[in-house]
């Protein structure tokens, strides 16, 4: 297995989060298959990757706080709350659809 192997996944932002990601709602991403320490890529690594490599906006705190996704953002793995899938320890699989949804409060 080579080190530069990647996992193709789809990322989607909703509820206004796309503003932090150049106003682009959907990304097709090739995520490195291994994280910094050679472990299989999980959602925690994906979040770091998005923050460092994809997000151009300097307001990182509107996406990540205390090393995890900030309060008020739901992470959905293949149409299910990530709490049903093991949260940030979920190992990313080929073809996964991972969605970040900011909660809305208007009414």
């Amino acid at each position: 297995m080579s080190n530069d192997e990647t996992i193709p996944i789809t990322i989607e932002f909703s509820g206004g989060l796309e503003i932090l990601f150049s106003n682009q709602k959907k990304y097709s991403l090739a995520l490195p298959a291994k994280d910094e320490s050679g472990e299989p890529a999980n959602v925690a690594f994906l979040v770091r990757h998005l923050c460092d490599k994809v997000m151009k906006d300097p307001r990182k705190e509107l996406f990540v706080l205390d090393d995890t996704v900030r309060p008020g953002i739901l992470v959905l793995i293949n149409e299910a709350d990530w709490e049903l899938e093991g949260e940030d320890k979920y190992e990313v699989q080929k073809g996964d659809h991972i969605m970040f949804v900011s909660t809305l409060h208007g009414g």
Binding site: E61, L62, L65, R70, G72, L74, S102, T103, H105, G106
Partner: peptide, 13 residues
């Protein structure tokens, strides 16, 4: 679903 409130600066009316 939302144990912690969002940071106030992220709340848009």
């Amino acid at each position: 679903v939302f144990p912690k409130p969002p940071p106030p600066e992220s709340v848009v009316s």
